[in-house]
Nucleic acid binder design. Structure first.
Lengths: 179, 179
DNA sequence: ACACAAGTAGACCAATCTGTCTATTCTAAA
DNA sequence: TTTAGAATAGACAGATTGGTCTACTTGTGT
């Protein structure tokens, strides 16, 4: 793995677990064994690394979720598959997403205000809602927002309250919404 | 206002807006005009202050939400009132909660792991779910979890995606759930 | 063989972090 | 009026922060 990739990968693990402000550059360096000069050769600042980590996670997560949805077909089947995918995630059955610790974008967004991070997080959510919209009856924007709401609710409920069955509940509500 | 209350109140404002790790003790001190010695006279550490802030917000928020619910009656009426209350919150019509910036407990929880903060946040959510359960048909725990999920989803969606009408959507889904 | 980019270790910097401490003043109750 | 607790300003300590820099060693493509 190239040094930049290694830094991004390790930084994500640490940020996801402990929070972004709680993890210093020196910790990322010592965990990776990479020299400080090398980090600043590839990233102009910690902020730049943070943004690269968000882009990295966005790609991994979006690719995983959309492929799980498309794999199940189109339309309602894809929407229902979304919640099956979440259920697998909550129960740590998705190796590529790492052990479930909530939504990285929600967490990252909460640590900043009026910052590039907020824009990236908002865009990530918007992209997913757009993808959902393409699979919803009448391509209704309203319906897509409601499905997104159920998705966010399931993630938050699973993480903060420890309700690992939240995705199953959300799926039932989604099904009744689509009917 | 007593010094401890002033510290807690100001710390909450700063933590809520910028995140907990992003706000240092010195900033809280300079914004309040309180001396450092005084802070450490009342709170043994920053962690102790953080916990006091969480307890403070828990009280404000829970009192507000439960009174809004009870004010509307009992049972289904109370549940529907919950979403009306959220709608007011999102649109900054509730002065005592300060300008809406998402759920403080979700944000705080995301900044720590294996920490007293996580326990407090989880307990806060549990207490609200218990209150919801008392107003749900058959006092069903399942149903209460689903309502909580809708509540969390609405807050996350309103904050991260900027969908200020999320509470209205959640209310519709809740109504169909209660029918 | 040569050149150039990518890597190394780690000293160093200024700023900031939490937390301690001294020395002094204010305030309210006994 | 005395006395104790709560408050003040701010110097100080030690650790850590993000970031720079020098001097040196790799590895790769031409």
């Amino acid at each position: 793995m190239s040094k930049p990739d290694l830094l991004i990968h390790t930084a994500f693990e640490l940020f996801y677990k402990h929070g972004i402000h709680a993890v210093g550059i020196n910790r990322i360096l010592s965990e990776t064994g990479v020299a400080k000069k090398t980090l600043y050769h590839h990233f102009s600042s910690k902020d730049a690394l943070v943004e690269a980590v968000l882009v990295y996670r966005d790609q991994i997560f979006t690719d995983w979720l959309t492929s799980r949805m498309m794999q199940a077909g189109e339309g309602n089947a894809a929407i229902l598959a979304l919640f099956d995918a979440l259920d697998d995630w909550f129960h740590d059955k998705v190796a590529e997403l790492l052990p479930f610790k909530g939504c990285f974008f929600v967490k990252a967004n909460g640590e900043f205000s009026d910052h590039a991070v907020n824009t990236i997080c908002q865009k990530h959510k918007q992209n997913l809602t757009t993808f959902i919209q393409a699979n919803v009856p009448r391509r209704s924007a309203e319906l897509a927002q409601s499905i997104s709401l159920l998705k966010e609710g399931a993630i938050a409920q699973a993480y903060v309250a420890g309700d690992l069955e939240a995705a199953k509940r959300a799926k039932l509500m989604a099904a009744s919404l689509l009917a």
